[in-house]
Design a protein around this nucleic acid. Structure first.
Lengths: 137, 137
DNA sequence: CTTGACCTTCCCGTCACTGGAAGGCCCATT
DNA sequence: AATGGGCCTTCCAGTGACGGGAAGGTCAAG
């Protein structure tokens, strides 16, 4: 039952988000803070709650649209946890795909870096690979 | 000694890059194909070589600016392989950082997904976590 | 009354493209 | 000669999720 009312700067500090990001979230309809008589945004406890929710979800890599869905589900008392889980699992799959991609890049790059002398001579297996020349065996 | 001369569509097929991407690379100065009398771009062997180089470098995740540097080094016969290696190693470090970030997300998400029943009931540890509620022990 | 720290909106830039519109060119068929 | 289809050209706008910065309003302190 607090009558907490914060300015955007205070909300930014409290939610550990840049004020710019908070304005952006309002612009795309993720939050709708009230306005004071002077036009300043006023953030109450519920707004702060949504902001921290967003900060946490974004830090887990959920897209903005995922966040929008998750917030909707969060507010819906009659939700099915299966819906939440489906979003999370889809995101997990994207993460796995990205990691596989990075892992493949990493493996190739690491091999190339290992094989390059890295001195002041011009010979470079990295450039050779990029140029499509077969590696010397 | 071939007098190979390809249109952008042919070059796109040969280099396995979208024509749009090739035009973009020209726009930002990565390639400078000649022009035919009718204004059409004409790609010769050297252009194709640069395009495949770019395709390979991009597929390894190098940024466009990295690619620009790598192409310059490739063309510079008096380069030091150390310069190439430095770019590659910096990129490797970025990949490692990204993978670590994804890995951390993945671990948290996986735990949450595992703990969610995923049925038609509303109770959801994923939402609880996002909302900042401590997990039930 | 001024200073300085806030706040407001608005617009541009990021990165590496992608999509689409409007129009020109070329070859083949009718 | 006209038409059709498939190329090609340029230009403009949008993507995701903000960040930078300008121009100006507001407010409490000194």
């Amino acid at each position: 039952m607090s009558d907490l009312a914060l300015s955007i700067g205070e909300a930014a500090r409290a939610a550990d988000l840049p004020a710019k990001t908070i304005r952006y979230y309002e612009e795309i309809g993720l939050i709708t803070p009230r306005r004071d008589a002077n036009g300043y945004r006023v953030f109450h406890a519920a707004d702060l709650h949504r902001l921290t929710f967003l900060g946490r979800a974004r830090s887990l890599g959920f897209s903005i649209e995922d966040c929008r869905s998750l917030l909707t589900l969060y507010a819906d008392q009659s939700r099915a946890s299966a819906e939440v889980k489906a979003i999370a699992r889809a995101h997990l799959d994207r993460i796995d795909a990205k990691m596989a991609e990075l892992s493949a890049m990493r493996a190739t790059l690491d091999t190339l870096v290992q094989s390059c002398a890295g001195d002041d001579r011009p010979d470079c297996p990295i450039l050779q690979d990029l140029a499509g020349e077969p590696p010397e065996t």
